[in-house]
Design a protein around this nucleic acid. Structure first.
Lengths: 349, 349
DNA sequence: ATGAAAGCGCTAACAA
DNA sequence: TTGTTAGCGCTTTCAT
């Protein structure tokens, strides 16, 4: 049980004071190059680790803002898991000397950039961390400004190639699509009629990549299978298209690649007689889907681990605060789970 | 931003000292009933929470022993995930002022009780926490002795009805079986031949309950379906039985309910020509299974979240140390995930 | 550029 | 039974 190396040890061994060691460890200037080198060398040599417990005790409170779309309206199904994960992550931290502030935008992701702008102006030097989502060029720019100002930024849900990010949690659209096609399977794809893909808007690259993989993987199982794409964000129009398709002819199966699309497709299928309902593979898991799992309308859904995304983002940001090593960006790929009626209860909280 | 309530505040408001407040909070005797009540009332009134950061800083080191079967030999497939989770949980804690000791038994669960006995004798007052597994009456008795001695015990993997347990993480055998039958599905069950269940030993209640649910759920989908049970722990014998069955006749599908059984069944199926391989649904996910996922021999496997079990156990035990409220036992039901070739990479670390 | 010193909120040893 | 006090290892402020 080797005694732990403290900042005091390093100070005495290098013939300096704890204050100087502290400055060196955190890269604060006002230390001569000679001393800096000496201290750094000793810290490495003795394998010094900061004691996070002690470190936290005296530190002044940090401020972290979480800026995400509100889980309401059509965004509800998508964001409720993420918010839940954020709350849970904060709870897990216990007393962390971090003041969290929650900001919700009303109209989804599109409003994020203007919210970032407002945040940038109002929060002067009082912001230390930011957790948000980045899906457009404007948001990218604002996030870069925050980073330049010294704010640590964690991104959830989508990747964005930004220099200096503290961490990002994302999902592989390709893997999601591959899982969906695989679940539908050779059996369903052998049936007559097109495969329907209730997708998100094409202007988002994640949805484009999803569709691409669906096309590729479907072709591998059933060449020449027609794929009919519907915009899941345009519920009214999509509903009509799909409804008439199902009433007239049929389709061999449906893949819904977005949370809201999964929801309304379930509702639509419910209006049809049982024998007219094709197999549906959905996306995300939330309480509203349970009845459709139970009735067999939704055969399976792909869980993007949004809850874990939220938890992880909080955790990683926290770690970055209590770790003086200015480590590079941490990228996390969210786990993709297959959820059916039989195990959906494990994915609801 | 309300200022946090400290032990000092409580002391001054009740006209006593921090030491007394501390004694009251931790239930140490040597405090008059009058004072105890007064302090407790004030703590409640002001919604006082212990500051875990500060609490940890000064506290003397705690000792926790983790006693589990070694992930070697036939136990390898089962316990590697659990051990990995334990290590990860310890890492997540960072500097927690807890000294962990890892003890591995060589011959699986059966050796746990004698290991507990040895541990009980050697570790005098120096043990504060224990994480282990309990699958027989002897272990139960030893665990009860530990608890009476004041050791906090966390159980992983199986439930055991013991008074005073700090926490337990377990898995629902019934849900596992239901998921397996559901995955095999009406389609496979409609094929001719019996359903083969490569199960664990019948003397374990978890395996008995597994088989029961398989029988019930199978009957619901395909009445009169014959179910052939093989002991997955007797690899040699089981291999012969299954091999001759598959070579002569056929079976409609195989469910393997234990990690080791899944492993050797995969190996067996590999020796057969492709058209003779029935659909296999397995249990647990570990690196050795990946080639069988890829080749299509293992259609799906049910992940018991062993990694998360280990993490959770460490976490919950830790929380119980930094929480003075002597809360009751925390029971966690491990999440059951469905894993296929398409998402197995997310379940390997 | 550097160091001394005062705590953070709590626990534990000691004193009364 | 109760109170006093000395830290835990670090961060921060202030003085040099």
């Amino acid at each position: 049980m080797a005694k732990r190396v403290t900042i005091k040890d390093i100070a005495s061994r290098t013939g300096t004071s704890v204050a100087t060691v502290h400055r060196v460890l955190y890269g604060v200037d006002g230390v001569s190059e000679v001393l800096r080198e000496k201290v750094l060398a000793e810290a490495r040599r003795s394998n010094y680790r900061i004691d996070p417990t002690a470190s936290l005790l005296r530190r002044k409170e940090l401020h972290v803002t979480i800026l995400l779309p509100d889980a309401a309206g059509p965004e509800k199904y998508y964001y409720q898991g993420l918010w839940k994960g954020i709350r849970q992550g904060v709870r897990n931290l216990g007393n962390s000397r971090i003041q969290f502030r929650y900001v919700k935008t009303d109209r989804g992701v599109s409003e994020i950039s203007s919210a970032l702008e407002r945040l940038y102006d109002e929060a002067d030097e009082n912001l230390d961390g930011l957790i948000t989502i980045c899906d457009d060029q404007d948001s990218r720019l604002w996030i870069q400004r925050f980073i330049r100002r010294g704010v640590r930024v964690a991104l959830v849900d989508r990747s964005a190639d930004i220099e200096g990010l503290t961490c990002s949690v994302e999902t592989s659209s390709e893997d999601m699509a591959a899982i969906a096609v695989d679940l539908l399977g050779r059996y369903s794809l052998a049936k007559p009629g097109p495969l329907v893909l209730v997708n998100g808007p094409q202007k988002r690259s994640s949805y484009r990549r999803y569709a691409e993989t669906v096309r590729k993987d479907t072709a591998a199982l059933s060449p020449d299978k027609e794929i009919l794409e519907i915009d899941g964000y345009q519920e009214e129009e999509g509903w009509k298209t799909l409804d008439s398709l199902l009433k007239n002819g049929a389709c061999c199966g449906i893949i819904a690649s977005c949370a809201r699309g999964t929801m309304w497709t379930c509702r639509l299928l419910e209006t049809l007689p049982k024998e007219k309902r094709p197999t549906l593979i959905g996306t995300d898991v939330y309480p509203e889907l349970v009845p459709y799992f139970d009735s067999g309308i939704l055969k399976a859904s792909i869980y993007q681990s949004h809850l874990e995304h939220g938890e992880k983002a909080i955790r990683l940001l926290y770690d970055s605060f209590s770790d003086y090593k200015s480590d590079s960006e941490v990228k996390i790929l969210g786990r993709l789970s297959i959820v059916t009626a039989k195990n959906c209860k494990y994915f609801l909280d």
